[in-house]
Design a protein around this nucleic acid. Structure first.
Lengths: 240, 240
DNA sequence: TCATTTGAGTGAACGCCGTTAACTATCGCA
DNA sequence: TGCGATAGTTAACGGCGTTCACTCAAATGA
């Protein structure tokens, strides 16, 4: 592990500046505003120079997406670590942190959780890879849920039903995370899609016709989720 | 209501052909492949001619989105009408039809349920309009749920809690659909975001790292939803 | 019937875009 | 000191949305 040469330092700095410019354009003008020429212009460069750093615009966007996944995951881990040792508290803190990041960064959320660009499909296609960003993010939620299950099992549908319906179809998850109690797997997937639906609906403005301040709905649903995980005994299902 | 003139007939035909071409490009190449020049090329025309029909590409895409909303809504209504008179059966049939359409038309789903294009925001911004496509679609689910509530109320969180958390924030929904029992409102919103999350996660390929055949998960969750609506008394929560 | 107005479509142009190719200058190292 | 690798340039190609001036056929009205 030798020290980086001067060239390497300059290179990584330029690389970071390119991605920063791409993100700035993404935030201010949407994904369509992210163009090599605009990035280069902002840097006082010309567009073809960027090809020394990325083989194509698509690859640049994929790299940006990977960075965003990491940023989000680190944020969730920080929220988890600040939530104390109770798995339910950790899960709730992570759900709230997930929503907060998403609402604060709608363009970034759209890039990594929205409709996959036909060209960006390569980024999502290697789903068997355990280092797939989605899998790494899922793991952050999965671990406390497994922890909780071992401390105090939460109610689920009958295991035979889950196994019959889902059993054969969990190969990707098994490949990336090993064997997990199938009740936990089901609860995780159900919770994940629910969380995803709440956040995506809000960020993608699919609730504007119905409700202002979707956070209120989010908190209500979080209470219901927490109730199902048995973490709270208040009769009204309120989250702590 | 006089008969359309020859000119009008030709105009509507050309208009439909433009939108059909746009949709074909959307399906085969994603939203980025929808270009005035490509549409015109397929029609044996030149791009500026399309400006006789739409003021901009963005307006064309917005019109296409409105058509897709209608197509989906009509499909859901057909599924409802084919499901018999039981509200729970109607709701389940509509949920399945929603998923089937979305999985069969991922590009179209992405257009109307994905991240709003900054330019397309005008399309979603007039959320107060009761004829907003989202509101019209929501109504299709809302009606059977109200019906069900009046026939046999389903369990919900305490009404005081819902009212406290959600009460003031339902103005948009009230404007488009009038007063609705707040328990129904909550159950509808919770169910809508859950359904949306399941379908969007599948269509946007956010589950590939975890599960093959997301339909199995969808059916499991549908069973849980039906169970919560009290429509099924089977102990395993299976949908009919 | 004939002149006129309207509407649909064309072609050229402008400024964006991604990408490639040929070229230049500088940095780091032997 | 010289040389190869590296980072940048300019020019060009084709594609894009959009505008403008123009043509030509169809509808309209006296």
């Amino acid at each position: 592990m030798t020290a980086p040469t001067r060239r390497e330092r300059l290179r990584t700095a330029t690389l970071a500046e390119i991605k920063a410019g791409a993100r700035r354009l993404l935030v201010t003008g949407g994904i369509d505003a992210v163009s090599l020429r605009a990035i280069a212009r902002d840097m006082g460069m010309t567009a073809p120079a960027i090809y020394r750093y990325f083989p194509s615009l698509e690859a640049l966007v994929a790299a940006l997406a990977a960075d965003l996944f990491d940023e989000l995951r680190l944020g969730l881990e920080a929220a988890r670590d600040a939530a104390g040792g109770e798995p339910v508290d950790q899960l709730l803190a992570m759900c709230r942190a997930f929503r907060a990041w998403s609402v604060a960064h709608p363009a970034e959320f759209g890039l990594i959780f929205g409709a996959p660009t036909p060209g960006l499909a390569t980024f999502v296609d290697d789903c068997v890879d355990p280092d797939h960003p989605g899998a790494r993010l899922g793991a952050v939620f999965l671990a406390p849920m497994i922890d909780l299950w071992h401390r105090s099992p939460f109610p689920t549908p009958p295991v035979e039903l889950i196994r019959e319906r889902l059993g054969d179809r969990l190969e990707p998850l098994r490949l990336s995370h090993g064997d997990i109690p199938i009740e936990v797997t089901y609860t995780f997937l159900a919770g994940w899609t629910r969380l995803y639906g709440l956040i995506a609906a809000e960020v993608f403005q699919q609730l504007t016709w119905a409700v202002t301040e979707p956070e209120a709905l989010f908190e209500l649903e979080l209470g219901a989720l927490a109730g199902q995980l048995g973490g709270v005994d208040r009769p009204d299902g309120t989250a702590r």
